[in-house]
Design a protein around this nucleic acid. Structure first.
Lengths: 188, 188
DNA sequence: ACCTGAACACCGTTCAAGT
DNA sequence: ACCTGAACACCGTTCAAGT
């Protein structure tokens, strides 16, 4: 006899993300997630293979949300950098998961697509991918270190961010003026 | 009646690091570590407060080893970048821990000191710290993304690394020529 | 077809009892 | 003083039994 569903995968993912940001990965317990959606832990296994799969879904959902933000923000590299950083501050745990979880790389790579477009405007077709990758690596590293507390010995982190942004744009502009050094296309 | 010690903290940390690189953080079990050093799990609590403290020690030991490598390598930014990347490839799990574990930021920051010196040679005193931070953020991000599999869609990752290195050096050189834009000193 | 209680394996941690 | 077995709490996961 069929029974009306008492929850859904998207409800589970939403609840998981709330728990994640509130208590880190350790707070994402099968019991806690189940309780959040009004069900018992064993029921989650109807929608999710196991806890690792759920954690991966949380990482991917975070990456997809970031992709949406980037697409919606203005189109310069500087705009993307600030949107990226603001998002990481808003969802620090989800952000960490994007690069910590095996298998989340593909979803995280999707967030890089709009950045490639912006890079093309700045440096041209040939170096768009390599430049986007440099840019993405820098923001990712900056925010990772910031979230890890590596900048807490004082000083204005916002200034450091804007200095780096200007420096990288200057470097890319300098590279763009060099004639067609074509690099092969790397993924994301 | 005193008993001769059957293990030591450094032996525990060494065993933990081996288990970490072999099986990730999940492989660093109190039982597994204890077995590696020939003792039972409860005995570990004589040397370590709890598992979190042990994980922190592993992150710090990794950071200290990286610091030693950087100090020992040649003194240009490019040399440091390659040493940094090679180290991360050698100890990927420990490297991830450096930025994932609460409290490891200080030890990780120590690794940045030689980079500040190299940056000073390139851009001068005023922007040495900000430049070192930009540089460190980029390598950290690049390697993080590389380890996460973000570059696996093909193409030569080594080329992308060298392109970014050259671009950042060009950008820093351009910034250095601008007259004394003094930025406050940030930590690490 | 989904949901649950009960059960199991595994892990971190404590502690009294050994030497 | 260090080490251990036993015990406990907690978590992920399975499964037979309910509706």
């Amino acid at each position: 006899m069929p029974t009306p569903d008492r929850t859904s995968l998207s409800e589970i993912v939403d609840a998981g993300r709330v728990l994640l940001e509130a208590g880190g990965p350790a707070g994402v317990t099968m019991s806690a997630v189940a309780a959040s959606v009004g069900v018992r832990a064993p029921s989650l296994y109807k929608r999710v293979r196991d806890r690792d799969a759920l954690i991966l879904l949380l990482a991917e959902a975070t990456a997809d949300e970031l992709t949406g933000r980037l697409v919606a923000s203005r189109a310069s590299l500087a705009d993307y950098a600030r949107t990226f950083r603001a998002f990481a501050h808003e969802r620090p745990e989800g952000f960490r998961l994007m690069f910590a979880v095996e298998g989340a790389a593909e979803a995280a790579g999707r967030a890089a697509a709009p950045i490639v477009v912006a890079a093309r405007d700045l440096v041209g077709e040939d170096q768009a991918l390599a430049s986007a990758r440099l840019f993405t690596a820098w923001v990712t590293g900056f925010v990772t270190m910031e979230l890890a507390g590596s900048f807490r010995m004082g000083g204005d982190v916002d200034d450091a961010f804007e200095f780096a942004l200007a420096t990288i744009e200057a470097g890319l502009a300098a590279q763009a003026s060099r004639p067609g050094q074509v690099l092969p296309a790397h993924g994301s």
